Simulated assay, not measured.
Amino acid sequence: MSNPTPYQPVQPTQLAQYASPNQSQYAQPQPAYGQPNYAPPVQPVYPQPTASYGRNPSDTGSFGWAVLGFFIPLVGLILWMIWKNDRPGDAGMAGKGALVSVIINVVLFILWIVFAGILFAASGSY
């Protein structure tokens, strides 16, 4: 039989690496008993900027601009072209009013042509 190798004792420096396997070497030490556990400083909460930041507060997109654009479409179109970058809410309402007015006028014009054609055909004169 061969001679078994003698048992070699573990050095204290080698024990330190096995002492606490759950903690990393960068873990913060736990406070001793009786000492207060101070929390890290809390960062102040600042309000987030709103969607109206940097916009004109009088730019509310009033329904009155839509009414003006509806009854005077040329004015609504001009206001939309002037205000589209500076006052987008009001410009949108004026432009929508003008667009609705133009669409309704085109539909009414087509209906008038159809009605006039029907009346002309019914009259019997060619």
Rank of each mutant, 00 (worst) to 15 (best):
residue 106 V to K: 07
residue 116 A to P: 10
residue 52 S to Y: 05
residue 41 P to S: 07
residue 37 N to E: 07
residue 95 G to C: 01
residue 118 I to M: 14
residue 18 Y to S: 14
residue 55 R to C: 11
residue 44 P to W: 01
residue 2 S to G: 09
residue 56 N to F: 05
residue 120 F to R: 05
residue 63 F to H: 01
residue 2 S to V: 09
residue 32 A to C: 10
residue 126 Y to E: 11
residue 17 Q to A: 11
residue 25 Q to F: 11
residue 18 Y to P: 12
residue 5 T to W: 13
residue 77 L to E: 01
residue 96 K to I: 12
residue 82 I to N: 02
residue 24 S to E: 14
residue 4 P to F: 10
residue 114 V to D: 13
residue 63 F to N: 00
residue 11 Q to R: 06
residue 120 F to D: 14
residue 107 V to P: 08
residue 18 Y to W: 09
residue 50 T to S: 14
residue 90 D to N: 15
residue 34 G to P: 01
residue 92 G to D: 04
residue 66 A to P: 02
residue 84 K to A: 13
residue 75 V to T: 04
residue 82 I to V: 08
residue 85 N to E: 13
residue 72 I to V: 12
residue 54 G to Y: 01
residue 76 G to C: 01
residue 42 V to D: 12
residue 50 T to P: 11
residue 125 S to T: 08
residue 75 V to Q: 03
residue 28 Q to F: 04
residue 109 F to N: 09
residue 35 Q to K: 11
residue 16 A to P: 04
residue 72 I to W: 00
residue 100 V to A: 05
residue 85 N to G: 14
residue 60 T to G: 10
residue 14 Q to N: 07
residue 123 S to L: 12
residue 55 R to M: 15
residue 39 A to L: 09
residue 18 Y to F: 08
residue 87 R to E: 11
residue 123 S to T: 08
residue 48 Q to S: 14
residue 84 K to T: 06
residue 106 V to I: 04
residue 1 M to D: 10
residue 7 Y to Q: 03
residue 50 T to H: 15
residue 123 S to H: 07
residue 53 Y to P: 11
residue 85 N to S: 13
residue 92 G to C: 02
residue 75 V to M: 00
residue 65 W to Y: 06
residue 10 V to L: 15
residue 108 L to F: 12
residue 75 V to H: 00
residue 125 S to F: 09
residue 65 W to D: 02
residue 111 L to S: 13
residue 28 Q to I: 15
residue 20 S to V: 10
residue 39 A to F: 14
residue 112 W to S: 14
residue 71 F to I: 00
residue 59 D to K: 02
residue 113 I to P: 10
residue 52 S to C: 09
residue 67 V to W: 00
residue 88 P to D: 03
residue 4 P to L: 05
residue 112 W to K: 13
residue 45 V to H: 12
residue 30 Q to T: 10
residue 16 A to T: 15
residue 33 Y to Q: 10
residue 23 Q to F: 07
residue 11 Q to K: 14
residue 120 F to Y: 13
residue 74 L to K: 01
residue 89 G to C: 06
residue 23 Q to Y: 12
residue 121 A to P: 07
residue 55 R to I: 10
residue 7 Y to T: 11
residue 124 G to L: 01
residue 43 Q to G: 05
residue 75 V to A: 00
residue 78 I to M: 05
residue 111 L to E: 12
residue 126 Y to G: 06
residue 107 V to T: 03
residue 82 I to A: 05
residue 39 A to G: 02
residue 40 P to M: 03
residue 42 V to P: 07
residue 72 I to M: 02
residue 108 L to C: 07
residue 12 P to Y: 04
residue 98 A to I: 00
residue 18 Y to L: 08
residue 92 G to P: 09
residue 96 K to Y: 11
residue 106 V to D: 04
residue 114 V to Y: 04
residue 81 M to Y: 13
residue 26 Y to S: 11
residue 4 P to G: 06
residue 63 F to M: 02
residue 77 L to N: 03
